[in-house]
């Protein structure tokens, strides 16, 4: 191997050139991909919003007391309010989109946007392959629930009250985490939504 030592001037020059070239490539590539990435993110959010809220024909984004709400309208009347709920699951953050009636009393739907739970166990909060007829049974059971005073988790039994959620067998901690996050976020959302006027975005 030929080893020749170079002066520090050349080293600086070459490194600078390489870094500048890489930077230029990245800048060009970013301007091409960034809109696509943003588009996918917004699309995922929009899909989630439309899934958790009752039938509607328009939505708008409102910020109240620093929290973002997605309001769904059928004609002129407000039919549902969606917001993101974020908190710690078993292994990492769980990010969800929760839809509720405008009085924030009844749940209209729940979608899990991001999670890093244990594969095959905690991931059943999103998709449970063992329930082939209804793999999304866990999130589906939130539909129509009344979190008053708050949601509770029960094990190995069919829920009988309108605030009960059945835990996933083998993933009790993930099930409880979802419910705990929702309880906290519903409470703070109620306060943020009911007090103060909103700033409408887009």
């Amino acid at each position: 191997m030929t080893q020749h030592t170079s002066g520090s001037g050349k080293m600086v020059l070459v490194l600078t050139l390489i870094a500048a070239l890489s930077g230029a490539i990245l800048a060009a590539w970013d301007s091409y991909t960034a809109p696509k990435i943003t588009y996918h993110r917004e699309q995922a959010l929009l899909v989630a919003i439309s899934q958790v809220l009752p039938a509607h024909d328009s939505t708008r984004t409102v910020v109240r007391n620093g929290q973002t709400f997605y309001e769904a309208f059928a004609g002129d009347s407000l039919v549902g309010v969606g917001f993101q709920a974020l908190g710690n699951g078993f292994q990492g953050q769980i990010r969800m989109m929760l839809g509720m009636t405008p009085d924030l009393e009844s749940i209209t739907g729940l979608e899990i946007l991001e999670q890093v739970e244990t594969p095959g166990l905690g991931t059943k909060i999103v998709h449970d392959p063992s329930q082939r007829s209804e793999p999304e049974w866990f999130t589906n059971q939130f539909n129509g629930l009344l979190p008053r005073p708050e949601l509770t988790v029960i094990k190995n039994a069919t829920p009988t009250h309108s605030n009960e959620i059945q835990a996933i067998t083998g993933a009790t901690i993930s099930s409880q985490a979802v419910v705990r996050i929702l309880n906290q976020q519903i409470e703070s959302a109620r306060q943020a939504f009911r007090t103060g006027s909103g700033v409408v975005h887009g």
Binding site: Q3, H4, T5, S6, K10, M11, V14, L15, I18, A19, S22, G23, I25, L26, W29, D30, Y32, T33, A34, K36, I37, H40
Partner: peptide
């Protein structure tokens, strides 16, 4: 230059990794 070769490699590799990452995300 021999002395800065690893640094140069890493900068080049990192640039292409970012390209790949953004491509997949997009």
């Amino acid at each position: 230059p021999h002395q800065v070769r690893i640094a140069s490699y890493i900068v080049i590799i990192a640039a292409f990794v970012t390209v790949a990452d953004r491509f997949l995300a997009g």
